Simulated assay, not measured.
Amino acid sequence: MFLKRIFGALQPTYLIRAYVISAAFMAFMVWFVSYMAKGQPLTGDKIATLLVFGIGALLFPFSKLVWDEIKRVMMGGNVFYLPIIFVLPLKLVVNYALWCFSIFIAPLGIAYLWLRSRQSA
């Protein structure tokens, strides 16, 4: 009931796009952790690190939702035209920060979806 209500409040294309971005960051972090291990077996701390990364990866769409809603409130319907050379690195940094802190930001997004879906029901 809870998951159906939360995931039902988001558009499927939004979820797919967010999970693709999240999977890319997760793949990079798995590569990084395995590269730093340099052939050593996975220890408990590395497994715990990957587990935290995995939880953060699952929560990323809700963290991204918080950012998108803040942008919507602050900027309204305004559109800015900027060179792509500036926009893409900025989007990459913002999405990476949202991915890193998704464990802390996502509960706000989940609460927002819960309240929004409760009002529409």
Results as ranks from 00 to 15, higher is better:
57 A>V: 03
57 A>C: 11
58 L>Y: 12
58 L>S: 06
59 L>M: 07
59 L>R: 01
60 F>S: 00
62 F>C: 03
62 F>R: 02
62 F>V: 02
63 S>Q: 04
63 S>N: 04
63 S>G: 15
63 S>L: 08
64 K>Y: 15
64 K>M: 14
65 L>F: 13
66 V>W: 06
67 W>K: 04
67 W>A: 03
68 D>L: 08
69 E>Q: 13
69 E>F: 14
70 I>K: 11
71 K>R: 12
71 K>V: 06
71 K>T: 03
72 R>P: 06
72 R>T: 01
73 V>I: 15
74 M>R: 13
74 M>C: 13
76 G>I: 09
77 G>T: 06
77 G>R: 14
78 N>D: 14
78 N>G: 06
78 N>P: 06
78 N>M: 14
79 V>Q: 08
79 V>H: 11
80 F>R: 13
81 Y>A: 05
83 P>C: 03
83 P>N: 03
83 P>V: 03
84 I>K: 14
85 I>E: 09
85 I>K: 12
85 I>W: 15
85 I>A: 11
86 F>P: 02
88 L>F: 14
89 P>G: 01
89 P>I: 01
90 L>W: 09
90 L>F: 14
90 L>N: 04
91 K>D: 09
91 K>E: 07
93 V>N: 05
95 N>W: 08
95 N>V: 04
96 Y>D: 02
97 A>G: 12
97 A>I: 15
98 L>T: 02
99 W>N: 00
100 C>D: 04
100 C>N: 08
101 F>C: 12
101 F>W: 15
101 F>D: 04
101 F>S: 07
102 S>Q: 11
104 F>R: 00
104 F>N: 00
105 I>A: 03
